[in-house]
């Protein structure tokens, strides 16, 4: 029986604030899963801690709500042990780029075939609006006692520098575009990263829906409203087609990621399927890793171990 969008929804009460950008992301996730027709029991959503962390409870697949900053570690373990699963990790910008930044970088280096989505709202929503790592220096959102004293992390730049092989940005109120990017991210062979600009109407009074829509700009110029534009509508080609192109495409993505203010690019910044996914690297050492991964292995028969260590024991014999 074909799965419908409704099949990917749970009945769990959603307690996000009205107007929260997170709703758009959950909807897009459910739509993407439905569009790809991924069996519900072959997908797992891992989430971090924060408002965004509750996402896994709203989606009717395996859902693992982990620890603050650690979502990538749990998700990678799950995918490595059972590579058949479609694995998505989701979490806040504080979760992934503050407390979890080390895991972010390390995950990039591994390039495990899964998808990571950051809900980028510039604040620590669930702890009442402190500055997140993506908030710009000198900005003061509603509940900050004084302007932010830290320079911001550039999620796209960091992802590209860390080895993520698919790096994109989306906007949570453009659900259709976001859904398309999620599908592309999941279908990418390797670790894909999606930075989703997510207005937090409760605590981020700077990067609001109206701001992204360019309401303030409209006053000065009648030509353009939205700050957000799509890279695919330009001549930007994010794809690494051959080896020699890697440096150039990395640099291009980094430069593009610095664009902010009146023009904010969304879409795919970088895509590289030349770099091997982690499973391929494992298969080089363990030829049957994918056919016989950890989760599928036979370890006992009638309660007796089936692993034969006699050769190792023989080598220790005296």
């Amino acid at each position: 029986m074909a799965l419908k969008l409704a099949d990917y929804k749970t009945t769990v009460h959603n307690d996000w604030c009205p107007g929260c950008g997170d709703f758009g992301i959950v909807n897009a996730l459910q739509m993407a899963l439905a569009e790809m027709g991924i069996e519900r029991d072959k997908a797992a959503i891992f989430s971090g801690i924060g408002c965004s962390g509750k996402t896994s409870h709203f989606i009717n697949t395996y859902g693992i709500h982990t620890l603050h900053g650690r979502v990538l570690t749990f998700a990678q373990g799950g995918k490595l042990a059972n590579p058949e699963m479609t694995v998505l990790a989701v979490g806040g910008d504080g979760d992934g780029l503050g407390i979890g930044a080390g895991h972010f970088v390390a995950a990039g280096r591994r390039n495990i075939d899964m998808t990571y989505i950051i809900f980028d709202n510039g604040v620590y929503g669930l702890t009442k609006g402190q500055a997140s790592p993506t908030l710009k220096l000198g900005e003061k959102t509603k509940s900050l006692p004084s302007p932010n004293t830290n320079y911001n992390v550039n999620p796209i730049g960091l992802a590209v520098a860390s080895g993520f092989t698919f790096v994109a940005r989306a906007y949570s109120y453009d659900v259709r575009h976001l859904k398309d990017l999620i599908v592309k991210a999941v279908q990418h062979k390797g670790l894909s990263f999606l930075d989703v600009l997510q207005p937090c109407p409760t605590y981020n009074d700077l990067n609001t829906r109206d701001w992204y829509a360019g309401e303030d700009l409209a006053k000065e110029s009648i030509e353009r409203h939205s700050r957000i534009y799509k890279l695919e509508d330009t001549h930007f080609d994010p794809v690494v087609h051959y080896d020699d192109e890697i440096d150039e495409k990395l640099a291009q993505a980094l430069i593009k990621s610095l664009e902010w203010g009146n023009k904010i690019p969304t879409g795919i910044f970088y895509k590289n399927e030349i770099i091997s996914p982690f499973a391929t690297r494992l298969t080089d050492k363990i030829p049957n890793y994918l056919e016989n991964p950890p989760a599928k292995q036979n370890i006992s028969k009638d309660g007796i171990p089936t692993t034969d260590v006699s050769k190792i024991l023989d080598s220790m014999k005296v």
């Binding site: 891992f46 693992i64 982990t66 620890l67 650690r70 990538l72 570690t73 749990f74 998700a75 990678q76 373990g77 799950g78 995918k79 490595l80 042990a81 059972n82 699963m85 080390g102 895991h103 970088v105 390390a106 494992l282 363990i286 049957n288 890793y289 016989n292 991964p293 950890p294 989760a295 292995q297 036979n298 370890i299 692993t307």
Partner: peptide
């Protein structure tokens, strides 16, 4: 069969991955 052995970026990741794997 095989043992997948992963050297992680720190012990937090080591236990996170182990739990993720155990869940399978």
């Amino acid at each position: 069969g095989s043992t997948t052995v992963i050297q992680t970026e720190d012990e937090i990741s080591a236990i996170g991955m182990m739990i993720g794997s155990a869940l399978t």
